[in-house]
Design a protein around this nucleic acid. Structure first.
Lengths: 205, 205
DNA sequence: CCTACCGATCGGTAGG
DNA sequence: CCTACCGATCGGTAGG
């Protein structure tokens, strides 16, 4: 019989995942102990093993759910059927905001994925690849000749670099809001696309 | 009397640092054991403690020497007294190349710095700040109104994001060389700078 | 007796 | 869901 509130298995599970994501993001997966996770959500260590098989399962769940959230976000934008420019701008804005809303999950996804076992890592990377491919396709609609020059994916990764790197320097309470940042990234990237010249249009024989 | 070769204290030290940098970059600082470091350079673990006080001293030395290499690189470009555009382009090219030449050190500097004790971390971050400030100053020479809008540092960090993020996707044996990447980053960033508009020119009262 | 290093093992703590 | 533990391995150091 619960004492204070309905236990809420799912709610407790989410609490644990959120606490783990924050700790993994701040300290790294390896340097974080299961005792720290337990303490952060006010339960004893063995309780964690009631909700998750082991430490890696926590990491896998964080990465899986966040990468699927990113994929859903891309598909939502795609479903809007915007013009190419507007679609790419929308993607940039939504991803910058997603980063702001799920900072810890995003950092775990990008930095701690190497600690997953191969099967889980490949599954997550597969979804990541779909997200990147959607971005690259949106970019190719804006500047088709960049796809012919095989530059649409490198440019997509440079864009992800700008967005993902913000965790190292952007202060949530600083002068620059995430909205202003999204506008800055959009302006910079769109302006830059116009200046990129495709040198060797590789023929496909 | 040495058996095979002159022992070379400094050479052995450099060997250890190189092996540690690679392991720390691939596995993370916490997940790398001193035994692994020792094994990677063919010595017994206690030998490591003849060259370095402890595991953290290895990390501190890697970060210190790499961040100073980056600072030296910036100062070399500055000493060339190039025109603003050429100087910023030179910085981008040199940093992209530095990343290619010292991939492991660069990844350790950007990802594992949190495992340093506060004093060492602050010392390294201080040098990093000087590097960023030099980049931001070079950028402000190209587009002075961006400094007035307080966008020169965010834009500098977006540039670092593009360069530093390459470790997640750029294959050393892939189609895109580091030279081609440097040109791509330069074109994209310079083109983008022209498109960034400084919305609120903050007056300094 | 010094240096440079090895085989063995220390006290503590990790995940489970 | 807690107390009490385990096999193993951690970073660091003893004697020789």
């Amino acid at each position: 019989m619960p004492r204070k509130r309905a236990p809420g298995f799912e709610a407790q599970r989410e609490d644990i995942l959120a606490a783990a994501a924050r700790l993994f993001a701040d300290q790294g997966f390896s340097a974080t102990s299961m005792n720290q996770v337990a303490e952060a959500c006010g339960v004893a260590k063995p309780t964690l093993y009631h909700y998750f098989q082991d430490k890696q399962a926590l990491l896998a769940q964080i990465c899986d759910s966040h990468v699927h959230a990113l994929l859903t976000l891309v598909e939502q934008v795609k479903a809007q059927q915007l013009a190419p420019d507007a679609q790419l701008r929308a993607l940039i804005e939504r991803f910058t905001r997603a980063y702001a809303d799920a900072q810890a999950q995003h950092r775990v996804l990008t930095s701690e994925i190497r600690f997953l076992a191969e099967a889980e890592r490949e599954r997550v990377l597969g979804v990541e690849r779909r997200v990147v491919n959607e971005f690259a396709a949106a970019l190719a609609l804006v500047r088709p000749e960049l796809r012919d020059a095989r530059l649409h994916k490198p440019l997509t990764m440079l864009l992800f670099g700008m967005i993902n790197w913000t965790f190292t320097w952007l202060r949530p309470d600083g002068d620059l809001s995430h909205d202003a940042l999204a506008a800055l990234v959009s302006d910079l990237f769109f302006g830059g696309l116009g200046a990129v010249h495709a040198p060797q249009p590789v023929p496909t024989p």
